[in-house]
Design a protein around this nucleic acid. Structure first.
Lengths: 156, 156
DNA sequence: AATGAAAAGCCGGGCTG
DNA sequence: CAGCCCGGCTTTTCATT
């Protein structure tokens, strides 16, 4: 049951992170194995949960997403279940793509995508600020993104 | 040259974001077209830049990433090229997977992955704090992530 | 190494705006 | 007419045993 990936497995993980649609043939030639054992390794990595899923990366701006933001939120902890209820409310907001519980001056940091300023106002006024327990929030609008690695940094 | 995706194209984008390794056959049956025109549409979306790339999503924790953080950075703007030089320095730091130029109280927000606290200290002491122009920084350690959508929110 | 499935590239024809 | 889709077909490529 305990499965530890070896160096070849790590190479496979690297290549599949770089190109999720690489064929098993290309993959096998890149790592220097024949196709059959390569596929076995990929399946093993998938089944063991090292590979969780595969996704296409799309151009959000081309799809009309004009505004990308981080939103920092501070909660009011007057009840013991503020956090789970907050998280539940956040899950229902489709503009919010990420929600992280963090240490530091704020409690949560969200990532949200909207079409334009109107969409942003709607998100804030009708959704975020209506969640109970939200004490304060602060938005950071993303002006540009200079780095976005699709690969987990480690020694492969 | 000007290419506007129609509703079928948007469905394709949604399905490929959900599952980047779906076969053309499954894709075509899901959207109700035959395989040939489906593949044509996918190629068109790729060539027009709507689909940028495909990636496997891996389990970082299983790979030994024990600490995930956001780091907010404030710069000292004593020269006009503080930003490009900062960005260049950030690009060279492999632990930093994302770098966004943002509005608000800080100038940049980074996402960084490290193995453990030792790795975090090394990142801060030997890399981040050695970049010129960095005035202040503040780390938010991610304790848990309750939402992480691999799909751009929009009407498909 | 072999088979069986899927993808890729062709064409002719049909529907629709 | 132009654009898009279908269906059939062949060849090539890939996955799977």
């Amino acid at each position: 049951m305990a499965f530890e990936p070896d160096k070849i497995d790590l190479q496979i993980l690297k290549l599949l992170q770089e190109n999720g649609r690489i064929t098993n043939l290309q993959l096998s030639s890149n790592i220097g194995l024949s196709p059959a054992p390569t596929l076995e390794r990929v399946r093993k990595l998938e089944n063991a949960g090292y590979i969780k899923s595969y996704h296409a990366l799309v151009d959000e701006e081309k799809l009309g997403i004009g505004i990308k933001t981080f939103i920092q939120i501070q909660l009011d902890f007057h009840t013991h279940n503020a956090i789970p209820e907050f998280v539940e409310a956040i899950r229902a907001i489709q503009e919010v793509t990420e929600c992280h519980h963090v240490t530091g001056p704020c409690d949560f940091i969200l990532k949200a995508y909207v079409k334009d300023i109107k969409g942003y106002e709607k998100l804030i006024m009708e959704k975020i600020s209506k969640i109970p327990y939200v004490k304060t929030f602060q938005t950071m609008m993303i002006m540009s993104t200079s780095k976005k690695e699709p690969i987990v940094p480690m020694e492969y």
